[in-house]
Structure formats: structure tokens, C-alpha cells
Amino acid sequence: MSLDSTLVGRTFPATQPYRVSEEKVAEFAAASGTPYEPGGQVPATFPIVLAFAAMNDFLDTVGVDLSRIVHGEQKFAYERPLVAGDVLTTALTVASLRQIGGNDILGTRSDVTDADGTLVCSTSAVLVHRGEAGA
């Protein structure tokens, strides 16, 4: 199944507010062995927790199975560091879509904003949606 080019430019409903806790940040840091102390630098890839949730909602909406998605590219551009206590929401926008060799190459931008609605981190991902083998 190919994705529909009318998705390009659409922004999907933002995720429910997510409270960043010291415990979750510590768990995330420990999973990659990254040094972290409470109040210290939150691991740079932590916003993927939010962006991934936004992507899952998007995939459910468009009817794509997660196992057919391979990550092609990821960028994090910070306006300010995340801190424990932040309450963040994330909205995914489809930036681009092209088809290559039976795969959909999907460009997404998921903006992470704080409780004031101020942008904290803009995350961009390229997602490769692998077509059915032999289809």
C-alpha cells in the first residue's frame, strides 16, 4: 500500500501533554549508558520519546504497520534544553512524500512545544515505509 500524496502539508493533532520526569530521563539515559544527574543535561535524543508517540498516532491514523517502518534520518534542533518538569506536546506534520522502488519515503517534522506553546525542540525524521515484498 502506498501512502497518499495529499498527506503532504498536513499537521496531525498534537499528543496529550507529557510531563518530563527525572525518573524517565534517568531511565532513558541509562539505556544507552549516558551519564545523567538530576538537573543535568537531558540526553540529546530524549525528545524521540515524544516524537515517537506522535509518529505512532500518525501511523495508526493512516493505517501503516510499525514493523514496515525503518528510520532513515533524524534531526533534533533545540530552541532551549529540555528540563525535568517540562510539560510538552508534540504535533507531527508531513513535510514530504516520494515513492522509490516500492517504498514510501516520508519526511516528517514533529515540533515539541512547552506548556506556554513555545517551541522547545523541532525534530525531523525521514521514515522509510517498506512496501510488501513482491507486491
Binding site: 539505556a31 544507552s32 549508558g33 549516558t34 551519564p35 543535568g40 543535561q41 540526553p43 540529546a44 535524543t45 525503518v70 528510520h71 532513515g72 534520518e73 533524524q74 534531526k75 533534533f76 534542533a77 533545540y78 534544553p81 525521514v126
Partner: peptide
């Protein structure tokens, strides 16, 4: 990418990361 961020954190002593990017 988390491991690359770990290396950056270790090299810099936990400096503030402004941008991080990679293609897989």
C-alpha cells in the same frame, strides 16, 4: 544516535546540545 549523543556528552562533560543529526 543515542550512543553518539553519549559520546558527545562524555567528550564535552555534558555540554548543551543545540543540534544533533544523522542519516541511518
Amino acid at each position: 544516535q543515542a550512543l553518539t549523543a553519549r559520546a558527545v556528552a562524555e567528550w564535552t562533560g555534558g555540554a548543551e546540545v543545540v543540534e544533533l543529526t544523522a542519516k541511518f
